[in-house]
């Protein structure tokens, strides 16, 4: 039961990753690509938590937390770059 649910969930999330990746590739503008990257981070977090459930290990949690933190910093840095032309003030 749980194994089947995990299998379905894995396919759905991988499809989501693929769609975000297509948006990252076709753009058309810079903000679209930033948004696609941000969505990729969140999809990757979902995938990691699913992997943790599948292998019954809580080690994947650390990686997911790191992606969440670094992804947010990355998105903010990209947006700041667009807003001001440089990242640090």
């Amino acid at each position: 039961m749980l194994a089947t649910a995990l299998l379905i969930a894995f396919s759905l999330v991988i499809l989501a990753l693929l769609l975000s990746f297509i948006r990252l590739a076709i753009g058309p503008d810079v903000p679209d690509r930033i948004l696609a990257l941000d969505t990729l981070y969140i999809n990757a977090i979902a995938l990691l938590i699913l992997a943790g459930l599948h292998f019954g290990s809580s080690l994947y949690f650390e990686a997911a937390l790191l992606i969440a933190v670094m992804g947010f910093v990355g998105t903010v840095a990209f947006s700041k770059y667009l807003l001001r032309g440089d990242i640090m003030e």
């Binding site: 969930a9 759905l12 769609l19 696609a36 979902a46 699913l50």
Partner: peptide
């Protein structure tokens, strides 16, 4: 658990469909 997992994965997919 199964319901939560599938619902979660579904909404993640919906977000990316919207993005696409």
């Amino acid at each position: 658990l199964s319901a939560l997992i599938v619902i979660g994965a579904f909404f993640t997919l919906v977000g990316s469909i919207g993005l696409y």
